[in-house]
Each structure stands twice: as C-alpha cells, then as structure tokens.
C-alpha cells in the first residue's frame, strides 16, 4: 500500500522527458499511473525515478482527419466521450469495458500500449485496427506498427528512452464491420479473453480481416489463420464458424490461472471470435 521512495520529476516537454530517461536507466514514465502506481504500492515495481509526463502540453487529444491520431495521454474516458471516433465504434465499445469509470478517468491509451498488459483490452483492438504508435526517443521519432510493438509479456519493442506520443489508427478499417467481445475476469475486470475483429468487404466478399486476441496469449496477438479463413469468403454463419474454429491456433502457449485454464481460454477464444464476428456481421 506504500510505494518505496523515489525521485519525482515532472518535465515540461517530451524532449526533456527523453533526456531524463536516457540518462537514468532506473527511471519509469508515469502517464495515468493506473498500471505503475498499483505495482509500486505492492512494491512489485520500485523505480528510482518517476518521470511524470502528465503536465506536458500537446500529448492529449484526438485528431480524426484520415483515420484517428490519439494523443498518448488521452484518457479512456476522453475516448469514450469523444465524438470524433464514429468511424471506429469498436474502439469506443472496448474502451467502455476498460477497468471502471474512475480508472477510465485516469488511465491513458499511451500507457496501455507501453505497458502491454497481457489482459488489456485496447491492445487487441489496436491490432485489429492495424494501428501504430509514434514513439520518440534520443534517436528521433519513429512509427511502430502495433504488430511489431507487442513482443513479450509486459514487454514492447520500444527502447528505454522512447516515449509513445500518439496512437495512430489508419483509415483501413474506418466504418468496417467491427466488434470487440470480452469475457471479463470477475474480480479484476481484465480480459480473461478479449477478441477484436475488423472486417472490410468488397463485392459481398471479405476483402480484409484482422482479429486481435488478448487475455489468452502471452501478449495480444493476431489470429492469423482465422483471418485467412475469412478472406475472400461471404461473411455468413458458416464462414464465421469455420474461422472461429481456427482462432486459437496461432496464439502460442496460453495463459492459465485459478480462474481459467489454457484449455478453457482456447475455447473462449473460439467462442468469442464467433460472437464478435457474428456481431460485426450484424447476423
């Protein structure tokens, strides 16, 4: 309940923050604080320096010209309340399922991407929407596709001195058929399994499909075999069932705990993929 002592730094620019991170290997970025502070309270995390980026101007806000560019410090609540994300209804629906109202008032989308919790909701959504993040570090600014961002348990491909400044959703799946479906852990509310699907169609056939799965794998991953099983097909019950049956095939070793075994998680991935696709298809 009581964090260890640390040095608190509140830079006023991203560059200043990067400088501190680069010169201080024991530093951690504090965004909304809803992953870091709980870990520090339980003394599971004990950074020597906490870099509070909460007062840096320009990191929050949503720009919806050509897809959506969401500032890293944009809170979940701001996403839910935004009228600029109408092209991506799944994002709003999924964000409503993150944590609880108080958590959504503080937690940020950038923090969620950087923390890469294996049971986070928006990691799967961003995979399905083919999103990327803009990261800035000593070496400059770069764009990292979320496909390449999530690399391990609570691990991203970002360098120690890199800060996510925005999450970028391309136009690929704007107004596409999409849905996020979740089986929430009864206590934590995190995803035991969450499945995000986005499907575009051309001439009545699936042109492009992306499926992001969270909760079950080590980190949010795509169900590529299921995606392939959809492509070129009519999005009907039969296609959906066939694709859903493959949804747990590409996820590697699955998580298990006292609430849900790996076997059950695999089953839920299939069930929820079917549900999500059915919902997205409007069947």
């Amino acid at each position: 309940m009581y964090p260890q002592q640390f040095e608190y730094v509140r830079p006023s620019s991203v560059d200043e923050a990067i400088g501190i991170l680069a010169s201080n290997p024991d530093a951690k970025v504090l965004a909304g604080g809803h992953s870091l502070i709980p870990a520090m309270k339980l003394r599971l995390a004990a950074p020597g320096t906490v870099v509070d980026i909460g007062k840096i101007d320009g990191l929050a806000g949503i720009d919806s010209r050509g897809g959506a560019k969401i500032g890293a410090m944009t809170t979940y609540a701001a996403i839910v309340d935004s009228d600029k994300l109408g092209d991506f209804p799944m994002l709003t629906e999924a964000t409503k399922q993150v944590g609880d109202p108080s958590v959504r008032n503080r937690g940020t989308i950038g923090g969620s991407m950087a923390h890469n919790d294996p049971a986070a909701d928006l990691t799967a959504v961003m995979l399905a929407l083919n999103a990327s993040v803009t990261a800035k570090g000593k070496g400059g600014e770069r764009e990292v596709a979320v496909d390449d961002l999530f690399v391990g348990l609570l691990t991203t491909s970002l360098a120690e001195d890199e800060i996510i400044t925005s999450v970028n959703i391309p136009n690929d799946f704007a107004n596409a058929k999409q849905a996020y479906v979740k089986h929430a852990h009864p206590a934590s509310g995190y995803a035991v399994v969450g499945v995000a699907v986005a499907v575009t169609e051309k001439d009545g056939k699936v042109e492009s499909a992306r499926i992001g799965v969270t909760g079950a794998p080590e980190h949010a991953k795509r169900a590529t075999s299921a995606e392939a099983a959809l492509t070129g097909k009519t999005l009907d019950a039969e296609t959906i069932a066939a694709a859903a049956a493959l949804a747990a095939d590409d996820l590697g070793e699955l998580n298990g705990d006292v609430y849900a075994s790996p076997e059950y998680r695999a089953h839920l991935v299939r069930v929820l993929t079917k549900r999500a696709l059915t919902q997205a298809a409007g069947l």
Binding site: M1, Y8, R10, L30, G33, H34, I37, P38, K41, V50, D52, G54, A77, P101, S102, V103, N105, R106
Partner: peptide, 18 residues
C-alpha cells in the same frame, strides 16, 4: 474515490504530486 477536477478518481492511485 474523490472528485479531482470534477471527475471521480481513486485517490489511492494518484500521487499527491500529480
């Protein structure tokens, strides 16, 4: 839970400094 700038937040998950 308290209101911080009008919004409900969990005051155990905010540093005073923030």
């Amino acid at each position: 839970t308290i209101h911080l700038d009008g919004k409900a937040v969990k005051s155990c998950t905010v540093l005073t400094a923030q």
